[in-house]
Structures are given as structure tokens and as C-alpha cells.
């Protein structure tokens, strides 16, 4: 018994000491970035490691990608300096720049100043595609996507409030948050909800991949355009990686023309962006009471 006890203690002590002094990677600064998980999450690592490799080669520093589970987790990680660079949605981006003084938007996709959401409906509702705000959705059940999604929640809610002058809970018989654009499609397709709103990109992709049954669910309205996704960087990267580093990152993103890497986002190319481009999002978030 005693011998066994001693042996066990020895194993434990060794483990503790190794655990306590295993080398931390402090010697060389590493740029860590993340992206909000908005689609094709099963292959996040494969997709974004390509981006990490590209940035690493171009910037000549080690760049690593860490996956995050939710929009808010990416903002929290950015705030805690666990990540220094992030591909945010409109709302998460302004949350991040508000929480981290000195951080700013550096680039956005060429598509992003004109992003739209689709309203989709189950075929049994009889709702038809319409160029104007779809009449006849009030009183039905409705699902948003993630609570912090710009295209799946913030802007759809804004347009709903603008049209009806009341909150979604007052407009619809039931309001849900599916948590995800793909889940929104699944829930409306199964008829669990009658109407939903989501990012046009996810809809187009899933339609192309044959995951959508056009006899069951269809797009009934396209919202007016609004600014959405963008890259945000922390202001204090300059102290860690040297003067002018943020500009180098911006340049690397703007010059990116590798189709394979761009398809990760998916974007045609990146163009410059600044915090001011997303002021409308900030104001919308405040007017909906999602930010103080």
C-alpha cells in the first residue's frame, strides 16, 4: 500500500511540475485571429488555417487561428486580447470596437456594404415573393437566427419594427432564435416556424448544395442593403508587432487574390473599411436596446 501510494504521489508530482512549467509561447509574438462562426462550421479549422497561412507568409509573423463557438465568444476573446484580429459581423464588430478602445475596422468584403437578408416562408403559408415588405406575415410564427447576428437578427428586427412600429413579440404569434442560419432554414422547412430571416449567402449556398426543398420553403422578401461583415484589429498590436503593423495587415487583406482563400469567407475581394462605415449598425443596435 505504502509503496503504491508513494509511486502514485511521484507520478502526480511530476505531472504537476511539468504542467506548471511547460513552456508558454511568450518568446515570439504570435498574431491570433478568429472569425464569427456563421457557416460551414464543421470545417472551420481547415478553412481558416488557409487564411492563417496566407497572413503568416505575407506578414512574416506566426499567425494562428482559434475557433470560437458564438458571436459573443469572439467578442469576449477580442476584448481579453486572446485574439488580436477578427472577422466580425456588423453587430459583433461594433460591439468589439465599443468595448476595446483603440480598436478599429480595417477591411471588409466588396459585398459587405450592400449586404441583405432574406425573409423565407414555408410553402403552406401561401406567402408569395414580393418586392415590397411582405404583407400577411403578422400573426404567424417567426424565427431569427443567432441573437447576435446582423443579418439573422439585428437588421430583420429593424425592418420589422420600422414597418409595424411594434416589437417582434407583438407582431408574431411566436418568436424564436434558431441560433444559426442553417437551423433557420431547417426549422422553416419543417414547418416548425412559418417565417424566418437569414443571411442571403447561407441561403444561396444551401440552395446550390441541394439542402433546400424549393417546394417547401421559399424566399418571400429581400431586405434593403446594409453594411455587415468586416475585419477589426486591436490598436495595441503596434506595440507587440511594431509600428505600422495594422496597416501591413490591412494591405495583406486588400491584396489577397487567392480564390481558394477568399472562398473561405466567401468574398470576391476585400476593400478598405473604417469604424464610421458601421455607425448605422451601432445606431440600430442602440435603438433596438441591444447595446447601451
Amino acid at each position: 500500500m505504502n509503496k503504491r501510494f508513494m509511486a502514485a504521489m511521484a507520478v502526480l508530482c511530476t505531472a504537476f511540475s511539468i504542467a506548471a512549467c511547460s513552456p508558454s509561447s511568450e518568446e515570439k509574438p504570435v498574431l491570433i485571429f478568429s472569425a464569427i462562426p456563421d457557416q460551414d462550421e464543421a470545417r472551420l479549422m481547415t478553412r481558416f488555417n488557409k487564411v492563417a497561412n496566407y497572413l503568416s507568409d505575407t506578414l512574416d509573423v506566426e499567425v494562428r487561428y482559434v475557433p470560437v463557438k458564438s458571436y459573443s465568444a469572439s467578442v469576449t476573446a477580442f476584448r481579453n486580447n486572446e485574439i488580436q484580429l477578427a472577422w466580425f459581423g456588423g453587430l459583433s464588430g461594433v460591439q468589439a470596437t465599443q468595448l476595446v478602445p483603440g480598436s478599429y475596422a480595417i477591411a471588409q468584403g466588396v459585398e459587405d456594404p450592400q449586404y441583405v437578408s432574406y425573409f423565407i416562408a414555408h410553402a403552406d403559408t401561401g406567402l408569395q415573393p414580393s418586392e415590397y415588405f411582405p404583407e400577411g406575415i403578422e400573426g404567424r410564427s417567426f424565427t431569427f437566427g443567432s441573437k447576435s447576428s446582423t443579418s439573422g437578427r439585428l437588421m430583420p428586427e429593424f425592418f420589422l419594427r420600422e414597418h409595424y412600429g411594434k416589437s417582434p413579440e407583438e407582431i408574431f404569434s411566436r418568436v424564436g432564435f434558431s441560433g444559426d442560419h442553417s437551423a433557420t432554414i431547417a426549422l422553416v422547412q419543417s414547418g416548425a416556424y412559418e417565417v424566418g430571416a437569414l443571411s442571403y449567402q447561407v441561403w444561396d449556398r444551401e440552395l446550390a448544395e441541394g439542402k433546400v426543398d424549393p417546394d417547401k420553403v421559399r424566399v418571400i422578401w429581400t431586405t434593403p442593403p446594409y453594411p455587415d461583415y468586416h475585419w477589426v484589429i486591436r490598436g495595441d498590436v503596434e506595440q507587440k508587432f511594431g509600428e505600422g503593423f495594422a496597416d501591413k495587415v490591412r494591405q495583406a487583406l486588400l491584396e489577397l487574390d487567392d480564390r481558394d482563400v477568399l472562398d473561405t469567407f466567401p468574398r470576391e475581394k476585400f476593400i478598405p473599411a473604417s469604424n464610421d462605415d458601421f455607425l448605422p449598425i451601432l445606431e440600430t443596435a442602440r435603438s433596438l436596446g441591444l447595446m447601451d
Partner: peptide, 24 residues
């Protein structure tokens, strides 16, 4: 705990079901 982002099996489990990736 993977549901809130820690790197456990729940991270992938929740993703797979939410994304309709039922085989994985």
C-alpha cells in the same frame, strides 16, 4: 461545456446538429 466554446466534444456535437450535419 463545449456548447459555450470550450474545446470538448460538445463543441462539435452542437455544431453538427445545428448545421444539420447528422452523419458526423
Amino acid at each position: 461545456l463545449g456548447f459555450i466554446g470550450l474545446p470538448t466534444i460538445g463543441f462539435h456535437l452542437e455544431t453538427a446538429f445545428r448545421q444539420g450535419d447528422y452523419s458526423s
